[in-house]
Each structure stands twice: as structure tokens, then as C-alpha cells.
Design a protein around this nucleic acid. Structure first.
Lengths: 191, 191
DNA sequence: CCCTAGATTGGACACATGTCCAGTCAGTTG
DNA sequence: CAACTGACTGGACATGTGTCCAATCTAGGG
């Protein structure tokens, strides 16, 4: 099933439905923190939200869709303005900010890493939106006239780091530190 | 269950077992090419290999383990020597080589991307081995005295690209071309 | 205050995943 | 050639995933 969801002006959901969705997402978030993404099931989320599994599936196409949705909100809920004296510092402020927030919710980060690889249409849509948002942040930090390849390089390195975080090869805190060095290396000849 | 497998000198597997494993992996490879990684099930692989599902699970801890194992062999079966006049070209020869081979087996590439995120101990082991192998290749291309951060940056960008390939955001052929530019950008100030 | 659209529910379904174990079969060994 | 070790098998089990639908609530309009 394809259940849309998450359009900014709550497309086609009346108040009652919107509340149900909110409750589901909140419950999903709690459940994720409580038992981790491996143990979480849509049915336990439904239970926690006080609705039936059938209702949960009315709004969530899949477990992956839930994770993608939660991550999208996690991203969207904070508009971060890059700060810093030069381009490198501005970029680093972005990666630092993201990794710091990721470190606060490692379960969400781990969950989304594999979720985004899913093939539900709902995941697909969120995936593009999330990717676009990340690239936009890097572009903002780099300035409008930045070399597109540099933007892409930073984005690739960042997703690579996300992947390694998702695999547990490093913590998100380490990731922040390492990315500082990586950003410096990338920008060394491209400032 | 944890089923080891894939140690170089066929640790603890007698001839008969080794043949069964070979048949299973070959069948898995065929099945993957035939129906893709979403539709593949361990039971259909077992059937194709002419063994019972129970036997398949004796050697394969999970579907993810199968994919990781296949990818590891895919990687290990070709020892590529970087070529090129300068470091950039040597690096590009490595990424080109890998993406060219990936492009020949997109299903395997897509399969392994999500498989490596799994948490079976068998996947864990293969994951480290695969990551190590990739880093080793980049380090070889860069030379023994290369800045470790540069190696890491290239590795992160490469895994990021792999991730995007796995999500279907680009073909592995495009990936090869883009990585040429990315490598050039990374090395611009680090040659 | 009743009615009704439509949100919600219970519960069964089809299917995949991975586990387990008692029983069978085959290849080596004596 | 008989016995035995251990690889293999059949089949049931517990659990998760996502789908479907007839039946039931419930909020808001008339």
C-alpha cells in the first residue's frame, strides 16, 4: 500500500486522522528508543499508540516507511543556519550539527540507514526528500556559486559516514570529529 | 545461528560440505540474477542447489549472510593492481575498476548494500573484511605514505556512492564517472 | 436527536524468516 | 561387507510482515 503522509499542509487528512498519525509517529519514536529498530514491530507501535494494527497500516505503508517518516521529521524540525568564518568552518558547522543531533538519537539513525534502502514508494519519496535536504544544507554552507562536484563530494562522504554509523563501525560522535578532518581534506584545494 | 564460512583455507569444512556450500553459493548467485534480491528466498536457493532448506540454513545464517558472502567472493576473486601516471589516475583506476564490475552485477551490488547493514555475526565479520579490503585498495593506490584522512575520505565517498547505487539513485556506470570527478576534487589539494 | 460518512476494528489470510529435531542416507573404515 | 559417523532431510514451529474485509463505532450536519 502507498499511504502518502507527511506533506507539509497535512494533505487530505482531517483532524481525527491527523491526530491518529501523530499518535502513531510519537509511539513509533518512543518504541524505537525503548526497544531499538530490530525489535520494533508495527503492531507494537500500534498498541502503544492505542490503535489497532489495521489502523496503523492505514497510515504506515511499512516499518521502513515509519522510520523514514520519523527521520524526515527529525531533519525538518530543525532549520540550522551554517556559521563560521570561512567555508570550511561553515561546512563543519553543518556536519557537526547533524552528527550531534544524530548522536542524541542513535537508534533513529541506525533505523533510517537501512529503511531508506527499501523499495516502497513511500520510502522512495522520503528518500529523495531527505537526500535533497542534505544536499541543500551543504550547498547553503558552500555558497550558491560552489562547484557542484564539491557539493556532491561532501554529500557522498556524509552518506558514507552515515552508512558506517548505521553499521556500528563508529559512533555518531566520532563521526562528527572525523568529518571535520574529511571536510578539511576535501576543501584543501577547493576553498 | 552463526555459520562461519568463507575462511580462506575452508576452515573446518570437508570436501562434501565444501561442495554443498559451493552449490549453494552458485545457486544463490544464479537466483539473484534471475529474480533479484527482493524476491530471492533462502528456500528457493536451496531448491535450485538441490538441497533441502534445512541444509541451506546449516551453511547460511541468513539471506543477508548469503549476499555478504557472494559479495566478498566477488571482491576477492579479482586482485586489481592500480595503474596510472599519478596518484589521481591510480585512484581512478581503482574506482573505475570496481564500478565497472559492479555495473555487471547490479543485483549483487543492490543486495549487498542492505545486507551489510544486518546484524548477524556472520554479516558482521564479512562487513569488516569487505571494508578492510576496500580501504586497502585505496591505500595501495595512494601509496603507503598517504595521509590517512585522505584514504578515509575516499573510502567514505565510495561507500556513499555505493549507498546511492543501492538506492537506485544512479547506475553503477554513472557512479564510475561521477567518482572520477569526486576523486579529482578530493585530491586537488592533497596530491 | 438522529443519521450517516468514513474512521476504526478484529481477525483471518498468505507468505517469509529462521529454528529445531528425529530420522534417513552415504561414504569411510575396519 | 557390515557398522558407524555425520551430512542431509522432512516437516513442524514460532514469529514477523503486509493485506483484506465485513462489522462497528463516532463526530458533525441536518
Amino acid at each position: 500500500m502507498s499511504s502518502q503522509l507527511s506533506a507539509s499542509p497535512r494533505q487530505g487528512l482531517n483532524r481525527r486522522q491527523a491526530e491518529t498519525v501523530e499518535r502513531l509517529l510519537a509511539a513509533g519514536h518512543e518504541e524505537l528508543g525503548a526497544v531499538g529498530h530490530e525489535a520494533l514491530t508495527v503492531r507494537t507501535v500500534a498498541h502503544r499508540a492505542g490503535v489497532s494494527p489495521a489502523t496503523a497500516y492505514t497510515y504506515l505503508a511499512s516499518k521502513n516507511h515509519l522510520f523514514a517518516e520519523l527521520f524526515w521529521r527529525f531533519l525538518a524540525e530543525d532549520a540550522h543556519e551554517p556559521t563560521g568564518a570561512d567555508v570550511i568552518e561553515r561546512l563543519q558547522s553543518v556536519t557537526r550539527h547533524l552528527t550531534r543531533r544524530l548522536a542524541e538519537e542513535p537508534e533513529l539513525a541506525a533505523a533510517v540507514t537501512s529503511a531508506l534502502l527499501g523499495s516502497d514508494p513511500d520510502v522512495e519519496r522520503l528518500r529523495l526528500r531527505i537526500g535533497g535536504e542534505l544536499v541543500a544544507r551543504f550547498r547553503t554552507a558552500l555558497g550558491a556559486d560552489a562547484d557542484p562536484v564539491v557539493v556532491e563530494t561532501v554529500a557522498l562522504a556524509f552518506s558514507g559516514a552515515l552508512l558506517q554509523g548505521g553499521m556500528g563501525l563508529m559512533t555518531y560522535t566520532e563521526m562528527g570529529e572525523r568529518l571535520d578532518a574529511v571536510v578539511a581534506v576535501i576543501m584543501r584545494g577547493n576553498a
